[in-house]
Amino acid sequence: MLSRRAALRFGAVAIGATAAAAGAAGCSSADDDRAAEPDPLLTALDAARRDADAAAAAAAVTPDRAGALAVIAAERTAHADALATEIARAAGEDPTLPSATTSAAATSAAPITPPTIDALRSMLAESQRGAAALARSLDGYRAGLTGSISAAVGAQQAVLLR
């Protein structure tokens, strides 16, 4: 025969286990749905890497604008790093370790044809619009990150490529 205290303890454990199982079942289906969709920041990450590579290539063949183009390349690389860190964090990875997102970029770097200043300006304008649209569709830190990137790319066009 169970004592009253043991019966209450057993009941509390049973209720807690049932609630935990129900909660885990509910969370796993939501996590599965999110895992099936690609991270929306991947497009901004690709654009940042593309812009950084293009600016670096243009700096190599445009010595009179090399300083400004090097700044753009460095800033867009920093944007790519911040986006990759956030993507890894959201995926449950350790952002301090190399991930598939950062490894793929390092191994797939192919020589790029240097764009003209006008072509780079167009690329940056496209990236700015994409980041602004993405910021409006997100919330919290991710919205702030992409909004900040959009503003920085706008400043690059207006100040560095004037």
Rank of each mutant, 00 (worst) to 15 (best):
V61A: 04
P63V: 09
D64M: 07
D64H: 11
D64V: 13
R65F: 10
R65C: 11
R65S: 15
A66E: 11
A66V: 10
A66Q: 08
A68H: 09
A68Q: 09
L69D: 01
L69S: 03
A70D: 15
V71P: 00
I72K: 01
A73P: 03
A73Q: 01
A74E: 13
A74V: 07
E75T: 12
R76T: 13
T77P: 01
A78L: 02
H79C: 05
A80R: 04
A80D: 05
D81N: 08
D81R: 12
A82P: 05
L83R: 03
L83W: 02
A84C: 06
A84L: 02
A84E: 07
A84D: 02
T85I: 09
T85V: 14
E86W: 00
A88L: 04
R89T: 15
A90F: 05
E93A: 15
D94R: 09
P95I: 10
P95V: 07
T96Y: 04
T96E: 14
T96N: 06
P98T: 11
S99T: 15
S99M: 10
A100L: 14
A100W: 08
A100H: 12
T101E: 13
T102E: 08
S103P: 00
A104K: 08
A105K: 00
A105S: 13
S108M: 04
A110Q: 12
P111N: 07
I112Y: 00
I112D: 10
T113D: 12
T113K: 05
P114K: 07
P114Q: 09
P114C: 09
P114H: 04
P115K: 05
P115C: 11
T116F: 00
T116N: 03
I117S: 07
D118R: 06
D118S: 11
R121F: 12
S122C: 03
M123R: 10
L124P: 00
E126S: 14
R129E: 15
G130K: 02
G130D: 13
G130Y: 00
A132W: 06
A133E: 15
A133C: 05
L134F: 07
L134A: 08
A135Q: 03
R136F: 03
S137T: 13
S137K: 09
L138R: 08
D139N: 14
D139I: 09
G140S: 10
G140E: 09
Y141D: 15
Y141P: 02
Y141H: 14
Y141A: 13
R142D: 12
A143K: 05
A143D: 04
A143W: 05
A143E: 11
G144R: 09
G144W: 06
T146F: 02
T146W: 02
